[in-house]
Amino acid sequence: MATEPGAAPADGSGPGGDALAAYLQAQATEFLRSLRAHRESGAGGGGAPEESAEAVRALRRSARRISGTLHTFRPLLDADWSETMRPELAWLSGTLAREHAYASRLERLLLALHRLSGAAPVPAAAGVGARTAGADAPAGAIAPAAPDRAGLTVGAAKAGALLDRQLTLARTRAHSTALQALGSGRFHAVADRIALLASEVPLSPAAADTGLRPLATAAEERLTDAVAALPLVTAGHPYNAAALVHGLAPETTPQPQDAPWHQVRLLLRLHRYAHEVLTGAPADVRLRAAGQALTRHRDASEAAAAAASAARTPRIAPATAYALGVLHADQRHEVEAARFTFHQAWQRQLR
């Protein structure tokens, strides 16, 4: 198919098959480029670990964009091919994401422990550029109530060591799983199909007379509806005590308040990708700011869950449990701060 990668119609109203094919071909080419970089930086390739990690991140980015585009513009694509590819891409991107997620979560929690206790810094997870917890809290947000620093410092070192053991073990297992996945027949089948996608996109007959804009608009409307269902009136305040109390409840299941926000994050990602297909350009800075706030929300929510899980470790010292409890509360405050930041960014997006 002789389409130029990156090409897009002027307004998205005309037949969108060529523009969609160009975008998918560009993402498939980027996937293959990242795969080659990963192989060259791997064992025997002489590359640095940082280069291999960046290649894996690039693989994930391309896989997410291809999968999201197949979802949003599925009427323009061969249905059987699209429905077969999407689960495989989701498996791949999810598998490759876990190692970085565990490492980033550990660094976030260790930095938060240091900030809360004022103790000597605990060694952070290597190779992860996570932000210091609390650094992204919006202006006007109320900081967590000051903990008993003397009591916290006693348990902070042991809490940090416990988190380090648990999350490093999880990271190591995720690394092994990712390596196994990249060497599996399942992955090679995915890579082969993406290689074919780089040269030919299986469009449906409807692609000849279906525009991109209606499908992109539908993705935006799904996002808008999901945001409208969020408690943005509450999120418009820098401190939501009711949600924090709920977040400190003893249930071991994920916080039910978090799930709608996670769903909005996924829908916002689909909207961004649809915007890229439609216009050939990245989303504007206000939309990116909203997405970053939701990513911080996800990170803080998962970090709080990790602290709560560690606190349930049998036979830990009371001081350790206290430090983990304070850490959990701190990360739930970060969840609320991220919701407040999203509220402000979304309101700017609507102007």
Rank of each mutant, 00 (worst) to 15 (best):
L96G: 11
R60S: 10
A43Q: 15
G94A: 06
V56L: 13
T95R: 11
G46M: 09
P49I: 03
S67K: 13
S93W: 14
A79N: 10
G94P: 04
S52L: 09
R39K: 11
L96C: 07
A97N: 09
A53I: 03
G68Q: 04
S52A: 15
P49K: 02
H71V: 03
R61T: 13
R64C: 00
R57W: 09
H71Q: 12
R39D: 14
L59N: 03
S93M: 04
L70S: 06
T72N: 06
A58N: 14
S82Q: 04
E99I: 00
L76S: 07
G46L: 07
E83R: 12
A58W: 14
F73L: 00
S93G: 03
G42E: 08
R105T: 14
P75R: 10
E50D: 14
G47R: 15
H100S: 05
L59I: 12
P49L: 04
W91D: 15
A48N: 11
R105A: 15
R61F: 06
E54P: 00
G42W: 13
S67M: 07
G94L: 02
L96R: 15
R65I: 01
E50F: 05
G47I: 14
D78G: 11
R64E: 14
E50G: 14
A63Y: 01
E40S: 12
A43N: 05
S82K: 02
S82M: 01
E54A: 14
G68F: 00
R64S: 10
T69V: 08
A43E: 14
F73T: 03
R60F: 01
A79V: 07
E51T: 08
A43P: 09
R61K: 11
L76G: 12
S41K: 07
A79C: 02
T69M: 03
A48R: 12
R86N: 03
P87A: 08
F73S: 05
S52Q: 11
R98A: 08
H100C: 02
L89P: 06
A48L: 10
H71I: 05
G46Q: 10
H100Q: 13
L76F: 01
E99T: 09
A101M: 10
L70M: 11
L59G: 05
G94V: 01
S62L: 06
A103P: 00
L89Y: 07
A55K: 07
W81V: 08
S104K: 04
G68K: 00
F73C: 05
E88G: 11
R57T: 10
S82Y: 00
T69L: 02
S52K: 06
S93I: 00
A43G: 02
R105G: 12
S82C: 08
A53T: 04
W91C: 05
E50C: 04
M85Y: 03
S93E: 10
V56Q: 07
S82P: 03
H71D: 09
P49Y: 01
G45R: 12
S41M: 07
